[in-house]
Amino acid sequence: MSELIKNFGVDWKLLLAQAVNFFILLFILKKFAYGPVMKMLRKRKEEIEKGLKFTKEAGEKLGRINEEREEVLKDARGEALTIVREAEGTAKVRKDEIVTDAAKKGESIIMEAKRHIEEEKAKMGEEVYRDAEGLIRSGIARVLGKMSAEERDKELIKEALSELKTAAK
């Protein structure tokens, strides 16, 4: 047995050295090769999964947004139509109101104007009478001044009597 071991050159020191070599290599590779590679592979896998998920979500979101937009547009169109229709209705009502109002107002303005004219006319008539009275009085005074007193008296008495007569009646 020892002869065999010697023939193969087996030496416990060398065995230990080679075993240590293995563990050194294991440590080196774990630290500088496997670690970084594994980390990178895992990281890339995560990134890709994240990217795919994001893409899927974005697609879904886009679809939803499009649907929503369609709906909103449809709603808006319907609303716009109802608003226009309503506006037309109110406009018609308002138009009628305005027209009747205007007619009423016009009438009242015309009436006012007529009343005004009447008043003015009456005022003017009174003024004419007032002016005429003065004129007539001065005219009469002037005419009477030329008449003799007798004649004037006679005339006045006559008139007074006739007045009395009418008043007695």
Binding site: L15, A19, F22
Partner: peptide, 12 residues
Amino acid sequence: SDLNFTLALAIV
């Protein structure tokens, strides 16, 4: 080609 290497590796 040295039994020390292969035996060490085998034991490990």
